[in-house]
């Protein structure tokens, strides 16, 4: 019995592709959903913000692609375990909230000794967290070796909370002369605290 040549070649092609498809089924199967656009409600308590912050870090923020919590050995990025106890004293003159904000809005301005720069600016696309989301992340970071204190009304040098515009200038860290360009549109961003996450920036672009 002889099988005709085209059938033999066809069989080989099908078997080869079949084999590679099979290999493709053996590896872990994970479907990555686009980040959820969860609205940050204005009435979140600090405890709620911790939970939301953790979710943001796992999902949309992509933080755990590089950062770890509670891992030692050769690290790519600084481990975040107990980071809150270090944050307050890391840079003189910066409170822990200010330090966290600085490392999120301007990550290259201070590099933890022993690491290479490489963290993207988190409030810009492609990650593009909103100011409110970043506050939640800070709340969660504070629980790593400390207690969360921030609320959605907390202002820092990169963000002025809408209700807190009058008391913001007396804030000892807000140095008006040293404002970064990132802070330029706070009024526009701040006017709707209920705006969906990433709404002001990528959302509008999508409609161009």
């Amino acid at each position: 019995m002889t099988i005709p040549l085209p059938a033999r070649i066809g069989l080989l092609v099908v078997l080869t592709t079949g084999f590679y498809t099979y290999v493709g089924q053996l590896v872990p199967q994970k479907e990555v959903q686009p980040p959820q656009e969860t609205a940050i409600r204005a009435d979140l308590t600090t405890a709620d913000m911790v939970t939301v912050g953790r979710q943001i870090m796992e999902g949309k923020g992509l933080c755990f692609t590089c950062h770890t919590i509670g891992k030692s050995g050769v690290l790519r990025f600084p481990d975040l375990d107990g980071v809150a106890s270090r944050a307050a004293t890391r840079e003189p003159g910066l409170s822990d909230v200010e330090y966290f904000a600085k490392s999120i809005y301007a990550p290259d301005s201070f590099i933890v000794p022993g690491f290479n720069p490489g963290m993207p600016v988190i409030n810009k696309p492609p990650i593009g967290l909103t100011d409110q989301e970043i506050l939640c992340v800070i709340a969660y970071l504070q629980t790593l070796g400390g207690t969360a204190t921030v609320t959605l009304q907390t202002s820092h040098r990169y963000y002025t909370a809408p209700g807190a515009i009058p008391p913001a200038p007396p804030d000892e860290k807000a140095e008006p002369g040293e404002k970064l360009p990132l802070t330029l549109p706070p009024a526009q961003k701040g006017e709707t605290p209920k705006a969906p996450a990433a709404g002001p920036t990528p959302g509008k672009k999508g409609e161009v």
Binding site: Y20, T21, G24, Q25, V27, P28, Q29, K30, E31, V32
Partner: peptide, 9 residues
């Protein structure tokens, strides 16, 4: 969304 590798293959 990004599909699973199995689907992609």
């Amino acid at each position: 969304f990004t599909p699973t590798l199995g689907f992609a293959t």
